[in-house]
Computed example of a mutant assay.
Amino acid sequence: MTQAKSPFNVVFVLFDNVTQLDFTGPAQFLCRMPGAKVHVAAASLDPVMTDVGFGIMPTVTFEDCPQADLLCLPGGLGVAPALSDDALIAFVRAQASAAQWVTSVCTGAFILGRAGLLQGRRATTHWGYTNLLPMVGALHEDARTVFDGNVVTAGGVTSGIDFALTIIAHLHGEDVARSLQLNFEYDPAPPFAGGTPVTSPPHIVQAMQTRFYDARSAEMEAALVATA
């Protein structure tokens, strides 16, 4: 266990069409971590539109953001176009150079990869995109949260909450993490077995792949090739 300084700056980087739960899930837990101060960074202070149609207000711009102790990149439908945003990638690269922890949730891993931060690392992302991780030099590991040195990647969407609790336990001990888990009554009991390709019925997996992830994966691949 390591001790975090106070304040411990947690910086989330937002872009248009971000998946709000990739951000708000871990943010809700990390903001209660002892000594933590959460910053929401974007290119400007204008609302950042999420992929469910409402906006989130940034608290800082890239120019005036403090140095992150923990940097986090959420994912979402906006990741593919964000890969060609040179200002965003430069900000991520600069912040990561001095951050204690460099992290992502879901397809935010590809922004880390685009910034050169996953080369030779074990990592994970949403199941629909794991085959693309080698394009950013990463080796896929099948887990909800993957630690490789100071780089931590989480799987799809809700994995961000597990990632946050794991980081909190690492920094402050299991009792603190368990207290926050109790505080937010995080006791998942989904109405259906599933949530991963292994635990879901094959016809459901195939339907989701055909209806959504084949096209989205191809879009991500094209964006990675274009920005390589």
Rank of each mutant, 00 (worst) to 15 (best):
F8E: 02
V225D: 10
A222N: 07
V198S: 12
G156Q: 03
D162N: 12
A115Q: 14
H203E: 13
V10M: 04
P188L: 02
T103R: 03
N131G: 00
N17H: 13
Q20R: 15
P191I: 15
N17E: 08
R93H: 12
S179M: 09
D22L: 01
F147L: 13
G35E: 02
S97N: 00
V38A: 10
C65Y: 01
T24A: 15
L45V: 04
T124L: 10
V48D: 01
N9V: 09
S159N: 11
V105P: 02
F15E: 01
F192L: 12
P47W: 02
T158V: 12
T199W: 07
Q3S: 11
D46V: 00
T19S: 02
N9G: 05
Q95I: 14
L133A: 04
F8Y: 15
M57S: 14
A226E: 07
Q119N: 05
T103Q: 10
A43R: 12
L112T: 01
P81G: 09
R211L: 13
A154W: 07
W101E: 08
V92C: 14
D148A: 13
R144D: 14
E141Y: 10
F15D: 02
T153D: 03
T153S: 13
R144K: 15
E141G: 01
V136I: 10
D64P: 03
M208Q: 12
F147P: 00
V92H: 06
T2S: 14
Q209D: 10
G149N: 08
Q95H: 09
V48C: 01
D16G: 12
L71V: 04
N183V: 11
I56D: 05
Y129C: 10
F54A: 09
V157E: 04
A94W: 00
Y213F: 14
V13R: 01
F184R: 05
F15P: 01
I161F: 06
Q95C: 10
Q67A: 09
A218S: 15
F54M: 12
F110K: 00
